[in-house]
Design a protein around this nucleic acid. Structure first.
Lengths: 244, 244
DNA sequence: TCAAAGCAAGTGTGATCACAAATCAAAAAT
DNA sequence: ATTTTTGATTTGTGATCACACTTGCTTTGA
């Protein structure tokens, strides 16, 4: 019996091959819609139809309706009484509400991460920061999508170190909910002149490197407050203008 | 033209009729599964099959699979790599993780509620407390289901006053996730002798009546920590016993 | 001229079917 | 006796269809 030999052979094969994964269509639809939502491809109040999305994604309605259902339970989308679904509208209350929740939960996550991050993990984050600067220096034209993606990776790389399997999905849900709002703010930013966004990220990394949980929390809150505050002002001025 | 008369007639009819509501089958399945989960009808590690649930609920597979998908995104259920779904297992890490998240978020919610609750709302909570004692005094036999339901109403009545449409769904998700754990603890409680659960709730109400946010937060954390701590001890002793 | 009724296109929901993958048990081979 | 293979059953996934409800427009009636 060549059991050991066969076993060894299988192992060498396994070492060379990369797992193929068995992502379902529904998963791909879900990821794609998530990406679109966080990226702000859909604007607030826009209604989405199952068949419309199915056509756009070139699948049948089945995976789409299940993905939509999941996004609705995460409050990333909203089910109207008409049974149609839309991207939730932006209101002042919702902005404040989201910012408070994000400060609370992401603040806790980064405070936990501050005491747990290994030097290797810190270095990884710092490298990211450098790459970021590089990109920003290179292209004078603003690449908002790339910027947003990098920002997302930066934050979640940190959050992943908090060691909480409960908090992280909640943070993902919060990003999903604030995605459309943030994107509106970002676009407004690029018109209203640039702020030094890099500064915030540097102070986050500095606090993490010192394992200073409180400083990390404060730096993070300052970072995520920025677009919310901007959007808040924008909405308020729009509201007062409507009154005239 | 009798327009005014017709209008008046319609209004009187509308006043007598109660809206019929348009709950879908999927919604009912979802609610039912939620109830079962929070109530601890399913035990940790139990796998659920779509067809099995569909038969039990007397519907087709369609509403069930969508409800399951929603529960999975809320982390109330877990999707195994086999694509089958089970209720998540209890581990020590998960218990601590859930307790931390619940203390953080529910603590924030009650702190917000403490500054916002109207005297009328406080009175409503107090009345609940009385009804509670009454029930407990009446039946010497412990009615765990009723107890749990009342506890749930008590907490969410308070949380609803926090005025955050973002926090409340997160709390619901957390209850869903800790439901099976808690139920295990509760059952163990009833064997291990009763603790004065009423005391915790009284101190919560007292803090709310004084609008003392910090005291309310602390009282709440003490309240929700109790079953978690109990369960934690139980698991740890079981683990050490396994080692022998 | 304007509101109400009627019609047609579009949309979500649930049921059913086909298919592929997983699971389990019995049979075969070592 | 243990392992492997084979085959039957179960299970999740995706597609399609039927039905009910909504919506927007046209037509009808006052």
């Amino acid at each position: 019996m060549q059991k050991a030999a066969i076993e060894r052979n299988n192992e060498t094969i396994a070492a060379q091959l990369t797992p193929v994964g068995r992502e379902t269509v529904q998963d791909r639809v879900y990821s794609e819609l998530r990406r679109a939502l966080i990226g702000g491809l859909f604007e607030p109040n826009q209604v989405l139809t199952i068949r419309g999305l199915a056509d756009a994604l070139v699948t049948s309605t089945m995976p789409v309706r299940e993905a939509l259902g999941r996004l609705i339970t995460e409050k990333a989308l909203e089910a109207l009484p008409n049974r149609s679904v839309r991207v939730p509208p932006i209101t002042l209350e919702r902005i404040d509400d989201l910012l408070r929740a994000r400060s609370l939960i992401e603040g806790e996550a980064i405070a936990l991460a501050a005491t747990r991050m290994s030097p290797r993990q810190i270095a990884s984050i710092e490298a990211m920061l450098g790459e970021w600067d590089e990109m920003r220096a290179l292209k004078h034209k603003k690449d908002i999508d790339r910027e947003a993606t990098l920002n997302q990776s930066f934050h979640f790389e940190i959050y992943r170190c908090c060691g909480s399997a409960v908090l992280i999905p909640m943070i993902e849900s919060l990003w999903l909910q604030s995605g459309p709002c943030i994107r509106v703010a970002i676009y407004a930013f690029s018109d209203a002149g640039e702020v030094d966004t890099a500064h915030y990220h540097r102070s986050i990394v500095a606090a993490l490197a010192k394992q200073d949980a409180q400083a990390a929390r404060e730096a993070l809150v300052a970072d995520i407050s920025r677009p919310f505050a901007f959007l808040r002002d924008k909405l308020q001025s729009a509201a007062t203008k409507d009154q005239t």
